[in-house]
Amino acid sequence: MLKITIDGHTTEVEEGTTILEAARKIGGEIVPPTMCYYSKLKGSGGKCRTCLVKVSKGSENDPRPMPKLVASCSTPVQDGMEVQNITSPEVLETRKAIVEFLLINHPLDCPVCDQAGECDLQDLSYAHGVDTSRFEEQKREFDVIDIGANIKLHMNRCILCYRCVYTVNQITNGRIHGVLYRGDASEISTFIQNAIENDFSGNVIDVCPVGALTDKTFRFKNRVWFLKTMDIHRNCPTCAGRAVAWMNGNEIYRVTGRKDEFGEVEEFICNECRFAKKDVNDWIIEGPRKIKRTSIISVNHYEKLKQGAIINPVDKKIEKPSEI
């Protein structure tokens, strides 16, 4: 077992664990945010650079600090390592810069984006971003395309985390989905417009941290914060059949995988469960599901806005701004 201290919290982890996984073990606000890393997808991580942390002590044997900030999702823990995340101004400053980079080509179309309310980038920019943009040029633009019968790709919103690429490569057979071109002209593509026709392709929607991949059966039907979330299951021949229903009254608006507190799908679900079974009678309802993430849906995160009173999106009461 290796000892690691992150922002003063010490824990012991097995060899080969990354700094990020160690931080998740400790939990709380010291967990670095991630936009591309996905523990269930092999090879993911290292790309978005939002999880950069400062290693102030390399290990017990070699206590020198690491010269540059390291990506916590891909750096293995060494015994006696000391890491600074939220206690390092350098890390927070860099994270702010990364958010700025992610946003310069990301359209600010949250009001018409289906992901709003459960968007990792929205949460990240709320926590670490600035309220103005220094980018004056035109953002890059792509056409909105269909990939498969049920998935819409808004390449404008994509932050190129590669999660969907890994998902398609790893949980479906046949590699027909990948990244074309390079630099800021890169785009997610099913090679030469081959639609993803696969039982598990719908999971790319769940792993997408932004609104680039959305569910065509749910698009523009409702906002996520108006819906109740229910744990549901059914006897599915293809997948485990455990999912979450987003409901209003007795109507199921959409079905997604169950996500853990870090926003990762616990079990991938099949397309039939996701897209075809929208009737309450198809499912056995277990009970309400609490969404743990610090997003607008559950914990009313925006109450900490400095200016003026805001409307609580859950119970629609007007609240006073909190003290900070």
């Binding site: 790309k47 980079f101 992610l102 310069i104 390079r182 630099g183 800021d184």
Partner: peptide, 21 residues
């Protein structure tokens, strides 16, 4: 550098294009 960035990590992908613009 804008043209040759691979586009994998965000600071380089977005930053090189920004610098050029």
């Amino acid at each position: 550098y804008h043209h040759e960035s691979c586009g994998q990590c965000s600071p380089c992908r977005e930053g090189t294009g920004w610098l050029e613009k």
